Simulated assay, not measured.
Amino acid sequence: MKITFYHHVPLPVKKYGGTERILFWHMKELARLGHEVTFLGHPNSEVENYGIKLIPLEGEFLRDRWQEKIPNDTEVVHLQYQPSFDIEKPLICTVHGNGQVGESFHKNSVFVSKAHANNHNSDIFVHNALDFDEYPEPENISNKGRDHLLFLAKASWRVKNLSHCKNVAKKTKKHLHIIGGKSFSLSRLIHNHGFVGGQEKLDIIRSCDALVFPVRWPEPFGIAMTESMSQGLPIFGSQHGSLPEVIGEAGKACANYEEFFDAVANFDCSLSPKQIREYCLDKFAINTYSEKYLELYDRVIKGQSLSIEEPRYLLKDRAETLLSF
């Protein structure tokens, strides 16, 4: 199959960029499977060693006129956003975030969790995934403790609910390690690591024993959860958005703060760290992700629309409106 992708950021990214990392892993997996993968992107991208053909875009073509560079023999174009113009080739658009109130989307939009799709009047979704080559099993997976909690999100974003994480850490006398910014605290239990990536980020994840993720918004997916589970960490979070379907038995999706406190205090998880990693491998590996997208590519190449009607954001309030917890 001949598949063309576009993105304006150099790939692979060096630190942050969940969308960009998943895009790169997917392209790499498709090339490994023998498909002809073309990437229209930043000239500093380093993808050709992975079997991906790079068409470098410069000047106005990088942002505004990239579609003019789509190869004529392309069978399907896969984008990570909604284009404002028509593309003559069969098209699929992955939706990574929440829409605005009443916003409509392309009929061939694919969401990143069942809950995310349902919130946009759709049933088309593919769970985000990891390339487990970049998340090898840690040596300490059979020797995890219960004293170190991880917060892995943008600390300044209220919907990620750092405040409840700090409260629980202090009351349970557990250490809280914050990746994704900094938060002022005089407590010796709160550790700010700022914005880190690569091996440094992985080492911090491995040094922790559980991810706390009590989000207060309709979380589309939450790659922080899969990153943490890949290293054997249970997830203690809220029940908003994708969390119940992603967490499964690998932790607890809590209805309120009281349940969240008890789950963290008692480490309420039926799976061992090794079983958590196996659960993550089974559900969120990049090969499964790519196989599911190949099925969707085949449908749109045959002229089918993934949705009968345009998906539309159904919630009455903006996604950033704080939900109860």
Rank of each mutant, 00 (worst) to 15 (best):
A117T: 01
A117F: 02
A117Q: 10
N118F: 02
N119F: 13
H120R: 00
H120M: 02
S122I: 09
S122W: 11
D123V: 07
D123L: 04
D123G: 13
D123P: 01
I124Y: 01
I124D: 01
I124Q: 14
H127F: 12
H127V: 00
H127S: 13
N128E: 09
N128M: 12
N128S: 12
N128W: 00
A129F: 05
A129D: 00
A129H: 02
L130E: 02
D131T: 14
D131Q: 15
F132H: 12
F132P: 10
D133L: 06
D133C: 04
D133Q: 04
D133V: 06
E134I: 00
E134D: 11
Y135E: 06
Y135C: 07
Y135N: 11
P136C: 02
P136N: 06
P136T: 11
E137S: 14
P138N: 06
P138V: 08
P138A: 07
E139P: 09
N140H: 04
N140A: 03
I141T: 12
I141D: 05
I141Y: 10
I141P: 02
S142A: 03
S142E: 13
N143Q: 12
N143D: 15
N143V: 07
N143C: 11
G145H: 08
R146N: 11
R146C: 01
R146L: 03
D147H: 07
D147S: 14
D147I: 01
H148S: 11
H148A: 11
L150A: 10
L150W: 03
L150Y: 01
L150M: 09
L152A: 06
L152P: 02
